[in-house]
Amino acid sequence: MATRVLDYESDAIVQLMSVAEEDWTEQELKDALQRAIMLELSTIPPYATALWSITDPDNSKPVRHTIREIVFDEMSHFGLVCNMLTRIGGTVVLTDPLTVPKYPGQLPGGVNPGLEVFLSGLSRDSAALFAEIEKPEHPLAFAADGNTIGAFYQRIADVFPKFAHLLTGGQQVDFPLGSGHGAGNDIVPMNTLDDVLSAIHVIQAQGEGTTASPENPFPGAPGELAHYYAFKEIAVGRKLVRDEQTGKFDFTGADVPLPDTSPVGRVPQGGWANSPGNEPDAATAELLHTFNQQYSDMLRALEAAWGPGEEDIFPAIGLMGAMRRTAQKINAVKLPIDPRFTYGPEWLFVPA
């Protein structure tokens, strides 16, 4: 029973969450894992676009370091879920035009309904968007609302034991990221149910923290916050601190200044050619196409890495570096209509 091709813009996750746990079938579980892969993939373009807009290349600087580590976390989450899907006999689908992320637009599957995800340079607004993407069911600093990614992963964790007998085969990628980015970041094979449940716990905790602490329990460095709280600090411009008297957390600490950035404008639906007056000239169009081709080739390389040929993940990693370099060239080109802003990468899929 192979993975079905699922439309990125459908509300399939909402539909899956409405199915009682005892009624889930093997197909529902495979669909859920494919949806989770699409969710993880959907966060990387907006986060990376913001990261690559920062002009200081020093990865040790606070805000750049924070966003870069989160991007690596999302990559490891993506890899762990791909391993879950292929281990139970599913196929990772990344290059069907129906499955690729669409921007601006909502998250795949109907998660966090009404939230429009856009591509732009780093700003307080984009950081606030990222915090909303990562928002827990019960954040320690604010009231909860909406359907969350963490709740979806919890449903997968609750259902998976029923299908543990399916963990019998399929291409597994084993790639060490933990030494540089935290103990939970190794992409490891899903050989047992414990492997699966541990991986889901890492994904949830790195994104949302725990019910007791906003810290990432699998950090690359001590004191690293879970994604939601880290992005919220950047959005609010203040560090998250705990009131010693009340025990409550709030964003009332030291200032969190934004780094210098290229002022990348919001990328329009379908790319810059659809922005009247900002249609790119030939040289800029070539840069945009180069990036889109590199992105599409990266998706093909990732799909191949989890395919039957047992290819490795290094070609995809190399393409990610090439994308960064191309994006920075794009970010240097001012928009014709409003030169206060620059072009940014479009992340459009180019079919083979």
Rank of each mutant, 00 (worst) to 15 (best):
R4M: 09
R4N: 14
L16Q: 08
S18H: 11
E22S: 10
D23R: 04
W24V: 07
T25D: 00
E26T: 15
Q27M: 07
L29C: 08
A32L: 04
L33D: 12
M38L: 14
S42A: 14
T43N: 10
W52Q: 06
T55M: 13
D58I: 13
K61W: 05
P62W: 02
H65A: 13
H65F: 07
H65R: 10
I67V: 15
R68V: 12
E69I: 13
I70P: 06
M75Q: 08
M75F: 13
G79R: 00
L80K: 11
L80W: 04
C82V: 14
L85I: 15
G89L: 02
G89P: 12
L94F: 07
D96L: 01
P97N: 09
L98I: 14
L98A: 13
G105V: 15
G109F: 02
G109H: 02
G109Y: 02
S123L: 07
E134S: 14
K135L: 01
K135I: 03
K135N: 10
H138R: 12
P139M: 04
L140A: 12
A141I: 15
D145C: 07
N147F: 03
T148F: 01
F152A: 04
Y153G: 07
Y153P: 03
R155A: 01
I156L: 03
F160R: 03
P161T: 01
K162I: 09
F163H: 12
L166I: 07
L166R: 10
L167R: 02
Q171R: 08
Q172P: 04
D174G: 06
F175V: 13
L177D: 04
H181V: 12
D186Y: 00
I187S: 02
M190L: 06
V196E: 00
V196W: 00
V196F: 00
L197N: 06
I200F: 03
I203L: 00
A205F: 12
E208Y: 10
G209I: 14
T210W: 02
T210K: 05
S213H: 09
E215S: 09
E215Y: 15
P217N: 01
F218Y: 15
P219E: 01
A221V: 15
G223N: 05
Y228M: 00
A230Q: 06
A235E: 08
G237V: 02
K239D: 05
R242V: 10
D243T: 14
G247S: 05
K248M: 06
D250Q: 06
D250W: 00
F251M: 03
G253N: 03
A254H: 04
D255R: 00
V256N: 05
V256D: 11
P257I: 09
P259W: 00
Q269S: 15
G271L: 07
G271T: 14
S275K: 10
P276Y: 01
D281I: 01
L288K: 01
L288A: 14
T290V: 08
N292I: 06
Q293T: 15
Q293E: 13
Q294L: 10
S296D: 07
A304N: 10
W306H: 04
G309Y: 11
D312Y: 03
P315W: 03
I317K: 04
G321I: 10
G321C: 07
A327Y: 11
I330A: 11
K334N: 13
P336R: 09
R340W: 06
T342P: 12
T342I: 04
Y343F: 11
Y343C: 09
L348Q: 15
F349I: 12
V350Y: 05
P351I: 10
